[in-house]
Design a protein around this nucleic acid. Structure first.
Ligand SMILES: [Mn+2]
Ligand SMILES: [Mn+2]
Ligand SMILES: [Mn+2]
Ligand SMILES: [Mn+2]
Lengths: 218, 218
DNA sequence: ATTATTTTTTAGGTTAATCTAAACTTTTAT
DNA sequence: ATAAAAGTTTAGATTAACCTAAAAAATAAT
């Protein structure tokens, strides 16, 4: 049984490592965990002793099979709870993350099973992020940033990359949402900003940075 | 902001004190908290320093206004979550307590507000226990143990007193549930056991002890 | 190839929540 | 009223998760 803190470390390592692909360094982990490098060293030793990660002094940590599985279970819970909060309780997509950070640590297999069923087995959360299945498998869909999509061609908004509340609120305000059908109608060479048509009904200007955080499929 | 442990202590003090009526002694608190008296002494000093309880050395603790309010907020959350688990997720009434013990500590006013609305403002939980309103007020309804109810008169099962999973499972098995209409059709002088008619359809024998744990209204 | 800078680890402490063992109060029994 | 028993508190440790400051290793700059 993992502690609340251990679970959060595993989750952070998963995200920072790109789903377990690259090693994660002490300082970046300290940064995301909002703690000091010395504390991180303590914790990675502990997780390493539990065979959840491989720790090599001065060279960072890598997720091991068990650690990755645990991380995925927590992410699964997080995203199911976010889906619940939006779909059933009427939260907006910018309000759910903080609460889900707490709910993801509730220990009950039965609860998650029943929650999943109640939500009718969703595959993505309110931010378009995939929900791992009970065994930790993720259905990957190839998405590219709107910033890299060709102009004048229709595409569908599938997910946000950076899901900060302020970005999400901004998107809602200008009328961009998951599943919206959009196309780039103008591109400013100078700064990469775009004019985007939404559902053939509305046109908005967004910065390159915003367009890099919107993931689409053709 | 209270810690997880502080919240659990306040809740235990609330229940052991009969909603704040009597003082609670160190040993009984140690018993329910599954800890040692020495640890309890430490914690009650802390809660006392926060003005949540009044602690008198060797004579136990009494809930203060703020402590009682906090306890009631936690109980409110516990019971709303139990209601959610049964009414929305399809848990049985014997499965919910443990999970609610965890969920009651989630910190989000908005969440509880929206959960309450989603459940359509329930007044009692799956065990018939009243759900305090947002300000901590409880709508008390006078109930008496079935064991003390006169024979041959109809009454309604309103709540269980001891809600242990095994008792709840037993009640389900013999067909007793909250809101069932029952009457005592026979009383054995020797051991106080009863024959009970349920909904005029079924008759079951229950012990005095069981009858003392079933709360009814006439 | 040294030296300087950055990154990471180690050493030694702190706080919350626990524990055991010993000391102290209160209650009960003689 | 005194002694025994029961209940409670204090003293001193332990563990998890953190910290600061100093030491060590890796990386970058001259
Ligand atoms: Mn989130
Ligand atoms: Mn999300
Ligand atoms: Mn309960
Ligand atoms: Mn209950």
């Amino acid at each position: 049984m993992l502690s609340y803190t251990e679970e959060n470390y595993l989750k952070a390592i998963y995200h920072l490592s790109g789903a377990g692909e690259r090693p994660v360094l002490t300082n970046e982990l300290a940064e995301t965990m909002q703690t000091k490098p010395a504390s991180v060293t303590d914790m990675v030793k502990k997780l390493s002793a539990k065979n959840l990660i491989a720790y090599e002094k001065y060279y960072g940590v890598n997720l091991l099979k068990q650690g990755k599985l645990q991380a995925l279970q927590i992410i699964r819970k997080h995203r199911l709870w976010e889906t619940f909060l939006v779909n059933k309780l009427g939260f907006t997509w910018d309000e759910v993350h903080e609460v889900a950070e707490q709910l993801e640590h509730i220990q009950s297999g039965l609860l998650i099973e029943k929650l999943d069923k109640f939500l009718e087995y969703p595959t993505v959360d309110p931010h378009g992020h995939p929900i791992p299945d009970p065994s930790g498998k993720i259905k990957e869909v190839k998405q590219i940033p709107l910033a890299d999509f060709p102009a004048y061609k229709k595409c569908t908004i599938r997910a946000v990359k950076n899901g900060s509340p302020s970005f999400l609120q901004y998107l809602s305000k200008i009328g961009i949402y998951i599943e919206a059908s959009v196309s780039i109608v103008d591109k400013v060479e100078f700064d990469g900003s775009l004019e985007v048509s939404i559902d053939n009904k509305k046109r908005v200007f967004i910065s390159r940075e915003a367009a890099q955080n919107l993931m689409v499929t053709g």
